[in-house]
Design a protein around this nucleic acid. Sequence first.
DNA 1: CATTCATATGTTCATGTGTTCATATATATT
DNA 2: AATATATATGAACACATGAACATATGAATG
Lengths: 114, 114
Amino acid sequence: MDMCQSCQYNMQVIEKIKNQVPDNELTTKLADMFKVFGDNTRIRILWTLFDKEMCVYDIAEKLSMSQSAISHQLKTLRQARLIKSRRDGKNAFYSIDDDHVKKIIEQMVIHVEE
Amino acid sequence: MDMCQSCQYNMQVIEKIKNQVPDNELTTKLADMFKVFGDNTRIRILWTLFDKEMCVYDIAEKLSMSQSAISHQLKTLRQARLIKSRRDGKNAFYSIDDDHVKKIIEQMVIHVEE
DNA sequence: CATTCATATGTTCATGTGTTCATATATATT
DNA sequence: AATATATATGAACACATGAACATATGAATG
């Protein structure tokens, strides 16, 4: 079967993982990154930003949550480099920072929907 | 560019995600599943099981942790259906339950290693 | 059936986490 | 400069979580 670039990359990763003692530094990084995804509010924020940028107020409104709660979670997501922000006057617009973020969520959707 | 089956599936998922109000039931499932991955011990267990089944004692030994701690985490992983177990005499052998588990970890490895 | 080995589980404790509330900062407008 | 609007931040609280410890269960073996 033909394999796209992304799947070829995956194969390389599998080879790297196989038969190795788990590297604690790497697994810690992985776990920490999974933790950032492991909150309903943050997933909903990422979902909301999936294909467009939005300002804080609009995210809060869309998710029916307080501006403060959203802002706190945006900070967490920004620190993890999953989203980026840009200021435009009084507003701060947030968007997904990395295509991997989408792939990771997609993969999990595939998993939980089976 | 040619796309493999897996990537075509991803495209379908993107379409599903775009422009939708986040479905709270789905995002909760996603977050809960990410949470299970979001612990260093559990990631190390999954890593250890990546290409072979192992019994509890050997996992504990390999990760230099107590049998009790490993057993507790195995229970969490089993409840989330990420691993399955089979008994053979006195031993319980655990293995990855679903190829998605590998893909999800691979995707995250790709992400954190950039 | 008593013992041993492998695994599972209940409880406790310390630590981590998410939200709320109050307040601070930043930018635009008058 | 004063005010309004948008966002960020700090502290506090309730709740979740992971490991340690003690103990229970289950299976093999004498």
